[in-house]
Write a protein that binds this DNA or RNA. Structure first.
Lengths: 242, 242, 242, 242
DNA sequence: GATGAATGAGAATTCATTCAT
DNA sequence: AATGAATGAATTCTCATTCAT
């Protein structure tokens, strides 16, 4: 399954570039500046720290004290801002996924052709992993297992991604760009699945990349879309799959 | 990510049929019958129980006593057969994944064309989920996400699936069945990813199936392979990327 | 055990009437009005709030923040006025019990007969519960049971009630109104105990009152005194308690 | 309020005698003897320890580890036998109060006159405090405050004591032994209250006893009943109930 | 005076693992 | 082999109290 963070939508592949995380810009001599942090800032700091620690140790392997240590605060303070560990994960999910889906919707809404849209989507998803791999780890690996049982409505939210992409496909069929004998609701799975597994594999470090990482992602995005659109067959099958 | 259980390879889709799990056929008046279980049987019973409980509660959420209760044995006994909780999960993985990879290899080795092989693979994977959804849950959700960090060699084992499928694709290219401008190492991801997400979605209950469940899986397998081979494009692009 | 609040002594039963507590007359648009509260007023506000919250949740179950919330102030402010939670309870006890004992002493000092005095005492005690049940709850259930071990001198203060009543009894014996073969020091226990348990039972809601609550308390006060003076025996009830 | 433990009913005052608690008969060289303790015994040991520690420190002031230390077991074991601290208190209440009420009922059912019955009740209650003061402390001071809010049905159970005694009074009225112009439902409060406060005062150490403690209790029981039956009035003590 | 963010000691509870029987 | 009592380290969560503004 795929779910990703902070996805500014841009139409090209250009966004696949470096960024990095520096969670706690430690100890800048903070006369008044630091104490004036609003509660919201502290809250954000905790979330950022949590993402990083969750990514490193997994949700269950993370102690509240780990998060506090990473954020360089007293761990009681975490409870000032969050009811418990689960609420932190919850917040991460809600915020990040919301942003992600918005980006997807923006892509779906622009006027371009299906192939361009899918390319954009692939680029966003893959670049997201490139720039914020911890977020992706957390979103992919930690959130669902924990909440799957607890919250069916959260799954509903996840399903939104599928709906957005299925709609793009449906539109492509309507325009005659895509074949109509495959259900968009199924086809979208294959597309998402292709991207998902690439990301997952990167997270799991199954894929080793030599050379330019950015180039790899670009190639991968192109490949996924090309394959999705044109198929793997050498032969051009004139006839519909009877 | 995909990894699945007890996959007797058969070449057609026919294997997608019911089976079911009844791990502890409780309270059969077991005068001597039960006591005579050999140690190996007890061990197996524990594994079966563990799979079911892991599937239900997740690895971390499962207590040894839960497994023991499900197996209807004293929980101290679990430690006779396994060093600790992790070893149970380990055993599940090793056994099931080994069987699975064997099935995949058998498919890869038979003499048929690429499309047939891929169809078999899709069938095996999807039917596996159909007949032993708990296994799939455990393999997908629990094992890797638990042990990922601990055991890199285990990931190597997972990678085997990709190699087997990439080899099938390579063979297809060599035979001229598949286009050659896409790297098999990348393409295999898209294929596996398509299957994976279908299974995952079923596990997560994102997909609702009306009517015949078996028919759904057959259709899905066909769709995945069709899409993978022929692509989504409405246009038949005549010329090879020469 | 009995210990009660704000006991203006009046000689009759008439004081058993309604009153009620509305501690925080919330949100009166308090531009300056509220800010101009003197420190003493704030302190009092905190005490009133504490009584109510202690009554509802018990001392141990009450957080400083609960008190602050009830008083509609910042909880840090509580620490301006009180060293800690215990000091709040302490203050409640000292103020209320002091007032109560004063009322008892006034009754003891007036010139009437024993029966009248006891009737007054019963009336004061029972009406106190009627008008300020939270105070009684706190005094009965929270204070002693919390501080009992910590502070023996406080018990001394509680004992004062017994001495006052025993003195009334002694005086009655000296006047020939009461029999002399029972020690006043023991007898006073029975009298106080009778009242105490009535109050306690009301607090615990063991007694359900139908109809007029005030009438119930009057009847109860009369019954306690009548029984204490005349006994339960059928024999020798020469005159009815007119 | 009064509620008391292990009250073997005997008709005279004779039961007011010493006993004491020795909860953990420590370290008797226990080859097999000790390990063979059944779970029930350990459970009982924990309860006994809990009573003592609760009595000393109060429910809220008692840590599970205190109980475990007193019982000389690992504190995890407490959780083997009880879900949590509250369940321990619960168990104490249910067991002890049940026994107590049974004793009361037995007294109520025997064929003697009202005064004798009341004397028995007084004796049981007072001697209970004498022999097991910790139990009384716990029952009186700890249980209700904790559970008052949680469990209204428990209060119902407490009310049973009142009903039993009110019934004795009603019977006395029917037989013509007691005056009929006082409601038994109210009168029983005064009787119980008298006993209660004596016990409470002892617990609070408000009363100091010089000389023989047993004699004190006997005198107290007689006084309470005498006063309850005959009243405090000097007038009309003419004839004993011959 | 007033605020509420920050701190951290303290207590409850869980549960993998050991071990005597 | 089988049992389940016993252990205690590890962790979460609470909340009184302090403190900078």
């Amino acid at each position: 399954m795929l779910r990703l963070p902070r996805w500014k939508h841009e139409s090209s592949m250009s966004e696949i570039q470096q960024s990095g995380t520096k969670p706690s810009t430690k100890k800048k001599s903070l006369g008044a500046a630091d104490k004036s942090r609003s509660g919201a800032e502290k809250r954000r700091l905790i979330i950022e720290s949590a993402i990083n620690v969750f990514a490193e140790k997994g949700y269950h392997g993370t102690r509240i004290s780990d998060i506090a240590k990473h954020a360089e605060i007293a761990y009681g303070l975490v409870y000032h801002y969050f009811k418990n560990k689960e609420e932190i994960l919850d917040t991460i999910f809600l915020e990040r996924w919301g942003e992600f889906i918005s980006a997807m919707r923006a892509i779906a809404a622009d006027g371009r052709g299906v192939e361009d849209k899918l390319l954009s989507i692939a680029a966003v998803i893959l670049s997201a992993h490139r720039t914020r791999p911890e977020w992706v780890k957390v979103l992919i690996f930690e959130i669902q297992r924990t909440q799957r049982f607890a919250d069916p409505e959260r799954m509903e939210v996840v399903g939104e991604l599928f709906r957005v992409i299925a709609d793009i496909l449906r539109e492509g069929q309507a325009r005659g760009e895509l074949r109509c004998d495959l259900e968009p609701d199924l086809a979208c799975y294959i597309f998402i699945g292709g991207l998902d597994i690439v990301v997952t594999s990167r997270v799991l470090e199954l894929i080793e990349i030599e050379g330019d990482e950015g180039a790899y992602y670009v190639r991968m995005a192109r490949t996924v879309v090309d394959l999705f659109i044109n198929g793997m067959s050498a032969v051009r099958q004139g006839s519909e799959p009877s």
